[in-house]
Design a protein around this nucleic acid. Structure first.
Lengths: 357, 357
DNA sequence: TGTCAACACGAAAACGTTTGCGTTGCGGAT
DNA sequence: ATCCGCAACGCAAACGTTTTCGTGTTGACA
C-alpha cells in the first residue's frame, strides 16, 4: 500500500525545500532547469497529485457544489442532477448531494452540514414541508454567510437568489388550450394541494386558459389530491379517488393533470370505465418522464427540460462564484454588489403523443 | 454579510488563546468554569461551527463517500443512491457523485479527481466501456493507495474489494421457471451483448432453467440487442428489431427480458401483433422500475432491491473505513490485514403482476 | 577588489483545527 | 523559607498547499 506522496516527502527525498518542489511543479521560472527536471520526473514517477483538501483550505474554495433536493428516485430531479453534473464537471467542479426527503429538518441539517466549508454554493429545490411551514431562515442565513444559492423548480419569492424555473403557468395554459382546440368541452383538472408552488401555478394556468375561452370553471371538475397519494404504496387509493371523481362527472372529455402519475392513473381509470383515449377523453400531463413515453396510449405531456434547468442552474451558480473571486481583489461596495439576481425561465414544450388528437 | 467565525477570531475577541477556545468548546476539564461559559456563550451567539475542510485536513478523513455510476437518470441507480445516502447520512457521512456516462475515460478522470483527498472511499458500478476494455488499473491503483472501494451490480472478479450484487443467475432461473411452470413451451430471451456481466449472468440463468427442464434452447429464440438501443432516441429501432424477432418466431409464448425496457417494448409489440397478454404470451422483465408498475398490463419483474443494495454497500464501506481507523492505532501486519473482502448477495424477488398467469 | 544584479533556492506564514507539552501562579505541606 | 502539586491556560506542531519575502552564491563590471 503506497500512500499518496506529498510535497514534503518529495522535498525530503530530493533534499530540497518544499517551496522549491511546489514551484518546480508549477513550472516556475525561479527554479533552475536541472532541479526542475529532477523534481518533475520524481513527481511523475510517484504520481504526485496535490491534495484537494489542502488546496481547499488554502484557497478558501472547495470547487464543489452542494445539491439539495427532496428526492432522488424521481425522473425530473435526476435529470436536473445530470444537467448540473455535466456543467459542473466541465467547469472543474464536483457535486455533493443531500436529500431532504421532503422534510424541513433534514433540509436544514443537510444545509448546515454542507455550509461549514464543504461546498462553495448550493443548487436546491425546496422540500414540501419547508414550503408548507414557510420557514426560510436557513436559506437566508446561508446566503448571508456569503454562500450563494440557486433555486430551481420549487422556488420562493421571499429569498433573494438566482432561480431557474419552468413557466408552469404558461405551460399549463398551452396544454389546456390544446385540449380546448381539439374539441374538449369539459376539461377536468387533477392537481395537488396549493402549497406546492408549482401545483398552484399549474392550476392557475388551467383556470386562465378556460377564462380566455369564456368557459366557466366548475369546482366539480377540479380534483385536489393529497401529496401522499403520489407515493407508490398508495397507488390503489389514488386510483380509487380518481375513479370516484370520474363517476361523479360523466361528461369529462379532457383531463389536465399536474404530474405524470396522475395523468397515467387517470388514463388507466378511464380505460377501465370503457372510455376510449383520445376519442372519448383526451389527456395531458405535466413533467415528461419515463411513464409518459411508455404508457399505453403514450401520454401527451408538458416537458420541463430538466437537464437544461440543471445546466442553467449550474452555470448561474458557477458564474456567480467566479465573479465573487474577482471582487475579492477589487474592492466593491457591499451595498452596491450585484443585487441583480436572475430568474431564468426555461420554456416548456408540449410533446404530443397518442393521448390527444 | 457575516462570514463564518473561526476559533482565531473568537480567541482574539475574548483575549484568550486559540487552544483555550478549542478546548472550551469541547468541554475540556482543563478550562476554568468561568472562561468556558464565556467562550461557549460567545460561540453560540456567533453560531460557530468548526470548518469541515480544516477538520478533514487534520484528521486525514473527509467523512465523504464518492459514488461513481454510469448514469443517474435511471431508476435502479437512483434507488441505490438513495440507499447509500440514507445510511451515509445516518452514520455521519456525505456523498459526492460522479457520473461516468458509461465512458472509461470519464470514469478514470472522476476517480482521480476524487481520490486526491476529497473522499474516504468509493461505491461504484463499472461503466460499460470499462467492462468492454477490461482495463481496471484505476480501481487497483485507488485501492493500493489505501482508498477502499465497494462495487455494486456491475462488478468484476479481477479486483479485490467488497461487492454487493444481486443474484442475477438465480433470479433469472426463477423467472424462467415461473414461465415454464405456467405452461410456456417456447420461451424467448431478449438480452444484451455479453460483455455486460449482468446481461451474461441473466442469459446463463435462462439457459440453466431450460436445461433443468430438459428443454433445448434454440438460438432463434434468443435476441441479443445492442446497448445503444436502450437509449430513448432509438426506441423505434428497438421496436422494429423486436417486431422482426416476433415475426421470425411465431410460436413464442413466453418472454424473458433482461431489463424493463426490453420487456415493456416486447409487450407493446406483442399487442400490436394481436397477441393477448398473458393468455397468448407471458412476459417477465428484470429490474423493477416505474415502467413495470404502470405498464399495461403491468409487468411481472425480478426486483433487485436497489435501495437495499445501496444500504448494504454503504454499510460495508463505512464499516471498513472505521475499522481502518482502529488499525491505525494498533499495529497490524500489512500482509495479515483483512484480505477477507465480502461479497454480499441481495436476494431477488419475483414480483408477479398481470403479464404472467 | 569592491559593488551590485541576477539567479536559485529556503524560511515562514497562512488557511482552521486539535492536542501534547510547557509554563505560570498559587496554596498547602514540610 | 522551600518544595510540590495542581489548576488554568498558552505555545507550537501537525495536516498539505501556495506564496511572499528573504538570503546566499555567483558573475560581471567599474
Amino acid at each position: 500500500m503506497k500512500r499518496k506522496v506529498t510535497l514534503k516527502q518529495i522535498a525530503k527525498e530530493l533534499d530540497v525545500s518544499i517551496s522549491t518542489v511546489s514551484r518546480a511543479l508549477s513550472n516556475s521560472k525561479e527554479i533552475g532547469e536541472e532541479t526542475r527536471q529532477k523534481i518533475q520526473a520524481f513527481a511523475k514517477f510517484y504520481n504526485y497529485r496535490p491534495n484537494n483538501i489542502a488546496l481547499s483550505l488554502k484557497n478558501k474554495k472547495t470547487k464543489t457544489i452542494g445539491i439539495l433536493i427532496p428526492e432522488i428516485v424521481h425522473h425530473f430531479f435526476s435529470t436536473v442532477i445530470r444537467g448540473i453534473e455535466i456543467v459542473a464537471n466541465k467547469r472543474g467542479y464536483n457535486v455533493i448531494i443531500g436529500l431532504s426527503n421532503e422534510s424541513f429538518s433534514k433540509e436544514v441539517i443537510n444545509m448546515e452540514m454542507l455550509a461549514n466549508g464543504s461546498i462553495d454554493g448550493f443548487i436546491l429545490s425546496i422540500s414540501k414541508e419547508t414550503l408548507l411551514q414557510q420557514d426560510y431562515h436557513h436559506f437566508k442565513e446561508t446566503i448571508s454567510q456569503g454562500i450563494p444559492i440557486v433555486m430551481f423548480d420549487r422556488v420562493i419569492n421571499e429569498v433573494d437568489c438566482d432561480k431557474v424555473i419552468v413557466d408552469d403557468y404558461k405551460g399549463s395554459i398551452n396544454a389546456v388550450k390544446k385540449l380546448i382546440a381539439t374539441g374538449c368541452k369539459n376539461i377536468a383538472l387533477i392537481t395537488t394541494m396549493d402549497y406546492v408552488s408549482v401545483g398552484k401555478l399549474r392550476t392557475q394556468g388551467y383556470l386562465k386558459a378556460l377564462e380566455d375561452h369564456r368557459i366557466n370553471p366548475k369546482a366539480s371538475l377540479i380534483l385536489k389530491l393529497d401529496d401522499s397519494l403520489a407515493l407508490e404504496e398508495h397507488l390503489d387509493i389514488l386510483e380509487r379517488e380518481i375513479e370516484q371523481f370520474f363517476k361523479n362527472n360523466d361528461k369529462i372529455d379532457g383531463i389536465f393533470a399536474v404530474n405524470e402519475l396522475y395523468a397515467v392513473t387517470a388514463m388507466k381509470v378511464a380505460r377501465k370505465l370503457d372510455f376510449r383515449i383520445p376519442e372519448d377523453i383526451q389527456v395531458i400531463g405535466f413533467t415528461d418522464g419515463v411513464l409518459s413515453k411508455h404508457a399505453r396510449p403514450s401520454l401527451t405531456t408538458v416537458s420541463q427540460h430538466g437537464q437544461k434547468m440543471g445546466e442553467q442552474a449550474a452555470n448561474l451558480l458557477i458564474d456567480r462564484l467566479e465573479l465573487d473571486d474577482e471582487e475579492d481583489d477589487v474592492y466593491v461596495d457591499e451595498n452596491e454588489i450585484d443585487m441583480d439576481f436572475k430568474t431564468v425561465v426555461i420554456e416548456t414544450e408540449l410533446i404530443e403523443r397518442e393521448s390527444t388528437k
